[in-house]
Structures are given as C-alpha cells and as structure tokens.
C-alpha cells in the first residue's frame, strides 16, 4: 500500500498589507493629524509666538527703526494712566454686559419655557438681534440713542425729561453694554432654554404642593439645572465683551473723549492708527491674561458653588 499524497495547499493570493498596518499606530495617528497640526502651527502658533516677540520690540514702520527692548513696552504702558483707565473701562464693560446679558437671557428662557399663545413666534423673533451683523445693530442703536432723532429721546421728551444724550462720558459704558447684551443674550436664551426643557414638571408641581414659593423653586429646582450652562454662557459673553471692538467703533469710536476707550479699542489705536506694533502686541498679551483670569474665575466660582451645593444635598 502506498501512502496517498496530500494535495498541495492552494497558494493564497496575498495582498500587500495596508499602509496603516505597516507603520506603528502612533505614527499613523500622527500622520492623520499632521495637516491639522501644520495648519494650527501656521495660523495659531506662529502668529501668537510672533506677537509675543513683537511685544518685546519697538518699531516704527514710518522711519523703519526696529529694536529689541525686552519688557520696555510693558513697563511703559503699566506706567500710563491711559492704559489703567482703559483696563478699568474694560472690566466695567464686561461686568455690565455680563449682568445685563444674563438677566435678559435667563429671563427670556424662563418666559419661553412657559406655554402661552404666541410662544413659537416669540422663540423665532427673539433670535433676531443675534442674527444681525454688529454693524447693522450699531446703526439701529445709533438711531435709538440719538438725542436728535432717536426713539429714546422721543420717549424721554414725551415723559417731560427733554431729549437725553445716552452717550455721555458718564453713561456711555452702560449704554454700549446694553446694546451688546441685547445682541448676545439670545444665544444664552437658547442655551438655557434647552436645559430648562429637561427639568421635569413634576418637580415644580411637588414643590408647589410643599408650599415652596417662586423664588424658592427657582433657587432649588431651576438653578441646579442651569448652573453649568449658565457658567458656559457667562464665559462666552464675558470673553466676548472683553474683546468687543466693532460695536464700540461703530457707535462711539471710543468717545466721547475716550470714555468708551476699552482695552481692545486702545490696542486698535496703538497698533493700527499709531502703528506702534510692539506696544499694541504687548497690550494684547495683557488683554489675553485678563480674559484667562476672568474665564478661570467664572468656572472656579460656578463649579465651587455647584460642588458646595451638592455636598450640602448629600449631607
């Protein structure tokens, strides 16, 4: 008896291993994100790094002079009353916009959570200020504030107060902040409304049964839900207010007499009008620090309050 032979195994047609299998996972991952990294490097890292370098130089494009001055730009404007005035104006502006914007956003969200005739229409209309360009908003509000032709002047005259100028040096910051809040609040309204719609109605009903008043229901039911989205909105609106330029430029051009010359406006004047690029860059870095500090403070405050609240509830 002879041994039978095993037929030869068919030769599988082997395809070359895919490129992703031939390199390490890390390398493959790096390759995938490389375009984004390059782009980020070009449009974020390089300009930011260059602005830091610029802040340490003093140059005058007209005369062509340029020299490295270390921190001279910083020390110069820290010693300037104009800078501190602008910084204070910026902080006041941020505070006004944040407070006004939050009140309007939260108020509108609470209103829109209720069911009433015309609610859907109001929900659509309320977004209009946010949809407007800042320039258009500024034009509208120029006519609202104008003591000659303005809506507010007509109202105050009707009330016997005479035409009122809302853009005096004493009132210009709150007046600008109102416009900013008016334009930005709809975003907060939608943000908060989305969260409020998740709050079970039963909670409110039970609270009513337990005799909890309106403020109590807001504090103990609504606030825990909206705290985090509110913190995010505060960060957004605060950061936006701290860097606001276009609205101020269109409505007052920093006036009257520098009364609305916030830090972004001062940076604009320094950099683009006076062409002091080094000093403008240095101020931009200070503004960045201010925004970072404000943002972190908001989050720390919001999260601490939340944590304290949760701890209290657990106990």
């Amino acid at each position: 008896m002879t041994d039978t032979l095993t037929p030869p195994a068919p030769v599988a047609e082997t395809e070359p291993a895919p490129f992703s299998s031939r390199i390490t996972t890390n390398r493959y991952g790096l390759l995938l994100v490389a375009p984004v990294l390059v782009l980020t490097g070009l449009i974020v890292v390089y300009p930011v790094g260059y602005s830091l370098y610029m802040s340490l130089t003093s140059s005058n494009p007209i005369t062509g002079s340029s020299r490295f001055v270390w921190f001279e730009n910083y020390t110069q404007f820290f010693a300037s009353a104009d800078f501190w005035r602008s910084l204070v104006l910026t902080l006041v502006y941020v505070a006004c916009v944040t407070v006004m914007g939050t009140i309007v956003a939260l108020g509108s969200a609470l209103l829109l959570r209720e069911k009433f005739f015309g609610r859907r229409f109001l929900m659509a209309v309320i977004v209009l200020p946010w949809a407007l360009s800042t320039y258009a908003a500024a034009v509208v509000w120029r006519y609202v504030y104008s003591p000659q032709f303005g809506f507010s002047a007509a109202v105050s005259e009707h009330l016997g107060a005479g035409a009122t100028d809302f853009l005096t040096s004493a009132t210009v910051i709150p007046a600008l902040a109102l416009v900013h809040a008016w334009q930005f609040a709809p975003l907060g309204t939608y943000f908060l409304l989305a969260t409020l719609q998740m709050v079970p109605d039963d909670l409110y009903k039970l609270a009513r049964v337990d005799g909890v008043g309106l403020l109590g229901r807001f504090r103990h039911i609504t606030m825990p839900y909206v705290r985090l989205p509110l913190a995010i909105f505060l960060v957004l609106i605060g950061g936006q207010a701290a860097t606001a330029f276009d609205l101020i430029y269109f409505l007052t051009s920093g006036g009257p007499g520098g009364a609305s010359r916030t830090l972004p406006f001062l940076i604009y004047e320094e950099t683009f009008q006076d062409q002091r690029l080094g000093s403008g860059a240095a101020m931009s870095w200070v503004l960045l620090l201010v925004i970072v500090v404000l943002t972190v403070s908001y989050y720390v405050f919001a999260l601490r309050v939340g944590a304290r609240k949760n701890k209290g509830e657990d106990e």
Partner: peptide, 16 residues
C-alpha cells in the same frame, strides 16, 4: 450745540 455732538458721525452732522 446739539446734544450728543461728541459722538456724532459725519452723517449725524449733516442730518442735524
């Protein structure tokens, strides 16, 4: 002088 003059833009100046 008209109120608000220190924040006038050119168009306000002409319109006034």
């Amino acid at each position: 002088v008209p109120k608000g003059i220190l924040t006038f833009q050119e168009s306000d100046w002409i319109e006034t």
